[in-house]
């Protein structure tokens, strides 16, 4: 288990989910109406949204909750697999929009669906070593799926922003983390292609299930804890079934994962997925509650975290819109609008 010398925690958190949704049955209407769908609906970014715009809004919400001025952020880190530019950091623009520039470290992180939690773990190190007082770690994505591919039902959009700071100022103290990584070809996209490729042989086992279990079991072992010691748990959610299954394999109950299971309604928000679930849990958790988080990124790796909620949470969560407010404003679009907005029409 990794743990900084100085205790750290989450001092502010914020989410963003676009207002638009497409129903899985609408995608099935076009491609395959015969089999079941992996989610009910997924979030769709509007035509003026991308990883940068979603990161900015989630981060503004996190700053409002942390109640610090943006110049106190020592680093602004954006984890995503859908950075709008290949060369030109998302982090600089996000930091500028927040007012955190120029005395700030920024970087873009990449690790499929766990790019955001990579930034979170690094933030623990920066703050835990005393190099930084506050670090902003963001997971955000506007994921793409090839038309007709199974992934098209789930590849969604969203952003979650976490400000890591001293434990004494935290809404939830991070008690420890593990990272488990192997080179596994379960899912990849070459640099100049639009859509990713599945290594079907690997997707569930050993990739998602094996990797999530490894990180989670080691953290439980190192903490001397068992699943029933936690009030809530959240796992990376590429669909509805995977997080439910891995929770059961590990010994967590459906009740523990319910508040953080957002994929049935918004699909797989990639780098934001598990972190959005964590934020949704922070929206309802009470002081003393404990939260178990495990992210997953193809390629493949998982980061697991154990958190304990402090007395500061109930007052601070009211300072920005709750996850439920973003989930509630759902406007459904049809496949034609979705295809236009996602750039799948050949115009010239």
């Amino acid at each position: 288990m990794m743990k900084p010398e100085r205790p750290v925690g989450i001092t502010g958190y914020g989410v963003y989910i676009p207002r638009f949704r497409i129903a899985a049955r609408e995608i099935a209407r076009i491609w395959d109406g015969t089999s079941g769908t992996p989610v009910d609906s997924k979030s769709v970014p509007g035509p003026d949204e991308d990883t940068i715009t979603m990161s900015i809004e989630a981060a503004r919400n996190a700053l409002a909750r942390a109640h610090i001025t943006p110049d106190r952020l020592s680093a602004v880190w954006v984890g995503s697999e859908s950075h709008p530019y290949s060369v030109k950091p998302s982090g600089t623009l996000v930091a500028e929009a927040l007012g955190a520039t120029p005395w700030v470290s920024t970087a873009d992180w990449e690790f499929a669906c766990k790019a955001g939690s990579e930034a979170l773990t690094a933030a623990m190190g920066m703050v835990g070593s005393g190099m930084a007082e506050y670090v902003l770690a963001i997971g955000a994505d506007t994921a793409q799926g090839r038309p007709g591919d199974a992934l098209e039902y789930t590849a969604a959009a969203g952003a979650a922003a976490l400000i890591v700071g001293p434990a004494m100022d935290a809404v939830a103290v991070i008690e420890g983390t593990t990272s488990y990584v192997t080179d596994t070809p379960d899912f990849f996209r070459r640099a100049d292609t639009a859509y990713p490729v599945h290594g079907h042989r690997f997707t569930g086992e050993p990739a998602y299930f094996g990797t999530v279990r490894s990180a989670a079991e080691k953290l439980l072992r190192d903490l001397g804890a068992k699943p029933s010691d936690f009030t809530y748990a959240v796992f990376h959610q590429p669909n509805t079934r995977f997080p439910q299954t891995v929770a059961r394999q590990l010994g967590f109950t459906p009740q523990q994962i319910a508040p953080g299971l957002l994929s049935p309604k918004i699909g797989n928000a990639y780098s934001a997925a598990a972190l959005l679930g964590l934020c949704a849990i922070l929206d309802v958790a009470q002081p003393g509650d404990t939260i178990f988080v495990t992210t997953y990124g193809s390629g493949a790796g998982s980061d697991a975290y154990a958190l304990r909620v402090t007395d500061a949470l109930p007052e601070r969560r009211e300072r920005a819109p709750l996850t439920a407010a973003y989930l509630a404003r759902e406007t459904f679009v049809d496949y034609a609008v979705y295809v236009k907005w996602r750039g799948k029409l050949v115009m010239e």
Binding site: D48, E49, D50, T53, P84, Y85, A97, Y326
Partner: peptide, 26 residues
Amino acid sequence: MVTRRLRDLGPTGLIVYGYKFRPIVS
């Protein structure tokens, strides 16, 4: 106010970001 994409100046150009306004999310 929200910060959104104002214009996309094409595959070899800048993406221009800036303020827009929307109904309040509470």
